[in-house]
Design a protein around this nucleic acid. Structure first.
Length: 334
DNA sequence: AATTAAGACAACCGCTCTAGC
DNA sequence: TGCTAGAGCGGTTGTCTTAAT
């Protein structure tokens, strides 16, 4: 199996291609086809290695390549397919006619990845990120927004602002935890425990902060947190959506292909162009054991009822943050 | 107007896989 | 069966452009 001894340092040119080189390559391939890429450079009068010629042709000069910005549909397709396939750029490229794997990869790395991160999603798993620090940009933006909308006529008070930010972080952590709980996983992961630990420490922080700041006039009560006008109400928070069609990679090729096909179909009828997620649930039940079921009132109620023997198994209720279960908001949802 | 930083994208590198001998 | 060339792939780097200072 050895490695091909391509592009050895034997005086061959590297770097950007000139228009003349492009012209030589295109006219040679149009006349003779590429044939052996290794032999091509000599025959075409190019001081390049065959591999470089092949890449230049396949990624740039090929006549069927579509250039220009990615459309909204293409973007959705990439996001959907990436959720299923991961970094399989060539496989993704086969579903986007005229786009090369390299182009898609670059687009992902420079645009989509950042977009997902900014929206609080993990670009690798496509799941909402569980670490609170990943949401700091959103928290800051939310704090500014709330300030503008609700308190623009009130004098700015740094203590209140800090407390509000802290409260919002607390609220968001609760929401993220709720999101985790509503997606019953076979086993709780370390990141989930991190979130819960963070929740509890945030709870302590908030209680301490309130006790140290009587001027806030808010009692250290979790129930009251939900009623705190300084805190963003639950219904105003960005909706935490789980990608119904998302399933982990499986070894079975047929299943993967079926996923790809269904994702492609879904992406065509994407109803929410601003969402990176496939929001349409498949009408046929998924065989995947981790595909999240639709969230229903009954499900939430039964989760609360069964929290001592829930899908988290032996971990039991002790790992559930008390602040969460005591929360009036939580019961309100149920 | 000059300089610097950030973003975008083309190209390269190194690895694996496959077919042919 | 083992070797090699060719091709493909994903990650990384380099270069050019644009925006900000």
């Amino acid at each position: 199996m050895g490695r091909s001894p391509c592009c050895e340092d034997n005086g061959l040119k590297k770097g950007p291609w000139t228009p003349e080189e492009d012209q030589n390559l295109v006219s040679y391939i149009q006349k003779h086809g590429h044939g052996s890429w290794r032999a091509l450079p000599k025959l075409a009068g190019l001081n390049r290695c065959g591999k470089s010629c092949r890449l230049r042709w396949t990624n740039y000069l090929r006549p069927d390549i579509k250039r220009g910005k990615f459309s909204q549909e293409e973007e959705q397709t990439i996001l959907s397919l990436h959720a299923v396939m991961g970094n399989k750029w060539s496989a993704i490229a086969t579903h986007l006619p005229g786009r090369t794997d390299n182009e898609i990869k670059n687009f992902w790395n420079t645009h989509l990845k950042k977009k997902l991160i900014q929206m609080g999603y993990d670009p690798m798993t496509h799941q909402p990120r569980t670490d609170i620090f990943s949401s700091l940009p959103q928290l800051t933006a939310l704090a500014n927004l709330i300030e503008l909308l609700d308190h623009r006529h009130q004098p700015w008070d740094q203590q209140n602002a800090a407390a509000r930010l802290q409260a919002e972080a607390f609220q968001l952590a609760r929401l993220q935890c709720l999101g985790q709980l509503l997606n019953p996983l076979p086993a709780m992961e370390a990141s989930d425990m991190d979130t819960i630990n963070l929740l509890n420490s945030l709870s302590l922080m908030k209680n301490n902060s309130i006790q140290n700041n009587p001027s806030l006039g808010v009692e250290a009560s979790n129930a009251q947190i939900a009623n705190d006008p300084l805190i963003i109400p639950f219904s105003h928070m960005p909706e935490l959506k789980s990608p119904c069609a998302y399933q982990p990679l499986q070894s079975n090729k047929d299943t993967v292909q079926a996923q790809i096909e269904s994702v492609a179909l879904i992406s065509q009828s994407e109803s929410s162009p601003n969402s990176p997620w496939v929001v349409t649930c498949s009408s046929t039940p998924s065989p995947s054991p981790v595909a999240p079921p639709p969230v229903t009132e009954g499900l939430v109620t039964s989760m609360i009822d069964n929290c001592s023997g829930s899908s988290y198994g032996e971990m039991g209720p002790s790992i559930w943050p008390s602040l969460f279960l005591d929360d009036a908001l939580f019961h309100e949802i149920a």
